[in-house]
Amino acid sequence: MSVIAINNLAKYFSLPKKGKGGKPGPMNGKMGPMGIIRAVDNISFEVKKGEIFGFLGPNGAGKTTTIRMMTGVLRPTKGNVSIFGHDVWKNQILVKQITGNVPEEANVYFDLTGLQNLMFIGEIYGVPKKTRLNRAESLLKKFELYEKRNLKSMRYSKGMKQRLLLCMALMSNPKILFLDEPTSGLDVQSARIIKQLIREYNEKGVTIFLTTHDMEVANELCHRIAIINHGKIISLDTPQNLKALTQEYKAIDFYFTNGADKAKIKDLSSVREVQEVSGGFHLIVEDIHEGICEIVDFIKQNHLIIKQLNTHQPKLEDAFLKIIERGDKN
């Protein structure tokens, strides 16, 4: 069941006149024929209920513009976004009431304390005072900010501010959470807390739309991933299926206590490439299972003593780069 539907969504920005402001805007989108930048160019997809949907793309690909149209901040040039069947631009207040947002360039109010920031957002969303306070305190505890709740947020670290922003997004108990680069530039501890809580809220039924540059985060958290480049969706699938596109990255590393013949290893049927590394070999194989079986037979036949054996599955990062490269060629 879909909760978000994007139908032929497009956003075009007109180019600033030459000589004013240097570059023609922040978007790396396609130049249209009429002096416009197609930041988002007729994209359609849907997000299912209870899903963590990843939205990946290089800088300037159109991720933030898309998320801004999905959250009612920018008006689409063409097409529409609907949430629970309601057009976002036409029913902004209604839709914003049930969604929570952490925009990429957003910030907390530096002159307010952590608790005051949450109380302000709760009040704007119409959360009753008692519930507001209870919820704010509970979120601050959950995000490990409770001890610093009365400290002005200008004194928070970047990771703490990002956690506070996520708390602010959760103050209204949203049904859908939009997170634009939530772990970008964070320390390990903050990133881990945020990842854990994204997973936890998703398990409670919150649908999450997540843009990130962190492939590990996308791989760990997302049920499905869309890749956008030059304003167009160039791939949409599960992380497993996306990774399957990069077969050449299936690799096995093995290390021996005694030497082995590189030429003989190269003759193994599943091995495509052999690289000699200190004390062992790095093999690119057709299939991990077949490769391991052959190596085990090879070890037995040659009376080798194995020290270590590692397998390398294809990474999402490799898949992402390959998809982007393929898209650029096309």
């Binding site: 209604l94 914003k96 947002n101 910030n107 907390v108």
Partner: peptide, 14 residues
């Protein structure tokens, strides 16, 4: 410039 305006516009206020 501080990014709080975008945060505010994503709230249910016109």
């Amino acid at each position: 410039i501080r990014g709080t305006f975008e945060r505010l516009t994503t709230c249910p206020v016109s």
